[in-house]
């Protein structure tokens, strides 16, 4: 049997197909148009493994866009899906921190179950968007920010955790002659500090797993480790944990129904574009 997890985040859409393990995955940008066309991402991942959609036993959608996935059997929030996905990769996890495109969340996990969670408010500081804005202001690519910051010799102090104010602060640091590496190191410290303060409300306990696109930034990872005081575990592909968790939860629901001799409750699946105003 095959199971699919569809994670439509604010910035990226992630889809995985699993049997016993992940056999295919696609990560693509979300955006207004792509949100509507999540079906195409699904079709792309099916093409990878040459499977017809009907072969997928269960589809769980998660992420902010989960409501508008016409081919999903069920919607489950990203909190539950991330926790399940992270637990499957790191069974010793007690705290998961996810820094996505427009939100950051901390999840307390016990035996694979969510026991508490916190999220940022609607402010973009402490999220991937914060780094995108600063990358633009500095004229560096998002992907190179982490490595560049590792060359810092004298980390700049970025006092503001507001994205807009931080951008202004960065411009003034540049005019003061501070190196880009030092500025980036300061920014990573600022983002790590903000996320740490949020997650610590749950009382962070090891093992701690960091996921989301920002987990690919080595500068933020190091700054977070400095704040927390012990090393972080990072999945091989930190963007996929929500989709993996979604697929696994779909699998559990299916197997539970089958074992109980009950029919699997599926949605009215339509592998087509999302319509938002039905």
């Amino acid at each position: 049997m095959y199971f699919a997890g569809v994670d439509i985040g604010s910035t990226m859409t992630k889809v995985v197909i699993m049997d016993e393990e992940v056999i295919a995955s696609v990560i693509g940008p979300t955006g207004a148009e792509h949100r509507r066309l999540a079906n195409r991402v699904m079709e792309e991942v099916l093409r990878q493994v040459n499977l017809p959609f009907d072969e997928i036993s269960y589809v769980v959608a998660t992420g902010y866009g989960r409501i508008n996935v016409p081919f999903a059997d069920r919607q489950i929030t990203e909190i539950t899906c991330h926790a399940r996905g992270v637990y499957s990769l790191f069974p010793t996890v007690r705290t998961a921190i996810d820094i996505g495109g427009q939100d950051a969340k901390g999840i307390k996990i016990s035996n694979g179950k969510v026991v508490g969670f916190v999220m940022n408010d609607k402010c973009a500081a402490g999220t991937g968007r914060f780094l995108e804005v600063i990358a633009d202001a500095l004229g560096v690519r998002l992907e190179e920010m982490g490595e560049l910051s590792m060359n810092s010799r004298n980390r700049a102090k970025i006092s503001s955790t507001c994205t807009i104010f931080a951008e202004q602060e960065v411009v003034s640091r540049i005019s003061e002659g501070v190196s880009i590496e030092d500025i980036l190191a300061g920014l990573h410290e600022a983002i790590a500090s903000r996320v740490y303060r949020m997650a610590e409300r749950l009382k962070i306990e090891p093992d701690v797993v960091l996921t989301g696109g920002v987990a690919k930034n080595i500068g933020v990872v190091k700054a977070m480790e400095e704040q927390i005081g012990f090393p972080l575990l990072i999945p091989q592909e930190p963007l996929l944990t929500g989709a993996i968790g979604a697929a696994l939860l779909g699998k559990e629901l299916t197997l539970k129904a089958v074992e109980g001799g009950k029919p699997v409750e599926r949605g009215t699946r339509r592998l087509e574009e999302a319509t938002f105003f039905e």
Binding site: T77, I79, T80, V114, F117, M119, D121, K122
Partner: peptide, 20 residues
């Protein structure tokens, strides 16, 4: 007020309560 955020948090909270 950010309604999508509230709804997501309530959904996740209820999932947590169900698990408990």
């Amino acid at each position: 007020y950010f309604e999508a955020d509230w709804k997501m948090k309530f959904d996740a909270f209820l999932e947590t309560l169900e698990t408990r």
